[in-house]
Simulated assay, not measured.
Amino acid sequence: MRQAFEEEVNTLHIRFLEMGKLVNEAVYKSVKAFTNHDKQLALQVIEEDHLINQREQKLEESCFELIALQQPVTSDLRKIITVMKASADLERMGDHAVSISKSTIRVKGRKRDAEIEARLVDLAELVKVSLEEVLTAYLKSDVKKAKAIAAKDKKINERSKEILSLCIEDMKKDTELVFGATDYMLVSTYLERIGDYVTNICEWIVYLSTGKMLELNTKNVE
């Protein structure tokens, strides 16, 4: 009985990691589509978002079933809650990838700023690496690594603020850049929010190992 329960919990973790890979790919594609002005790739991200949503829904259903049927003890319940909460954070990251893709479709053909787009690519790479690292930390239940990843979110926030400042400067200098700069600001904010969700998952990793909810970043998202 115990072995069967452990196998089901392990299956949950595997499915969570698979979902994480889908989300990471969606984020990468959405930024690539935005900076390359690739409407077709943006549409692909939007169309494939339902796959992420389905995975999150199935994970949630499986978690509720385990709780109802197995009535797990405290330590086991933490494992299930962690999967359920962390997968919800992943699903929200996927939503932001969709929002970036919608920006791609909206801004196509408008005047662009190569420097800001390059900075967005750099910011996206920071976010992508953080997401990849947090999935590895989750797999290994690595609390030390989770805290280190959360600490790096400060750099993501700083880069996002730099992009926002450049956008404001652009809008002041050239009215033709107002619409494009607005979308740059939105994309930068979406990436920064994804970084916040990565921090949330770091907190769930700590909770899984210690049973304590620690706020690893003063700027959290709900």
Rank of each mutant, 00 (worst) to 15 (best):
E158N: 06
Y138C: 04
L139C: 06
T82M: 15
Q40R: 14
L135D: 09
S101C: 09
L90Y: 08
L59V: 01
K128Q: 14
D49L: 06
I116L: 08
K128H: 14
E117G: 01
E56K: 04
L126M: 14
M84S: 05
A114S: 09
A86I: 04
V143N: 13
E125Y: 06
A88M: 07
R110V: 13
R112Q: 13
R55E: 13
K111D: 00
L66H: 05
V107E: 04
S87V: 12
L41Q: 08
E125C: 01
K144S: 12
V73F: 10
M93D: 05
D89N: 12
L51Q: 13
L69K: 14
I156H: 05
I80E: 01
E117V: 03
R110M: 15
L131K: 02
A151T: 07
A88E: 12
S160F: 07
L131F: 13
V45L: 11
L123M: 03
L135M: 12
T82I: 03
S62H: 06
A118K: 15
E60G: 13
L135A: 09
S103H: 06
Q44R: 08
K58G: 04
E48G: 01
I52T: 05
I46K: 05
L90I: 11
K58S: 13
L123C: 03
S75A: 15
T82N: 07
I80Q: 00
D153K: 02
S101T: 04
S87R: 10
L135W: 03
T35C: 11
L131V: 08
L59A: 00
V127E: 05
K145R: 15
Q54D: 07
R119G: 12
A42D: 02
Y138G: 03
H37A: 02
A42L: 04
F34C: 09
L43P: 02
A86Q: 03
Q54R: 09
M93E: 07
I81A: 11
S160N: 14
Q57I: 11
A151N: 09
T74L: 05
T74E: 02
S75W: 01
T136W: 06
S99M: 12
K155E: 15
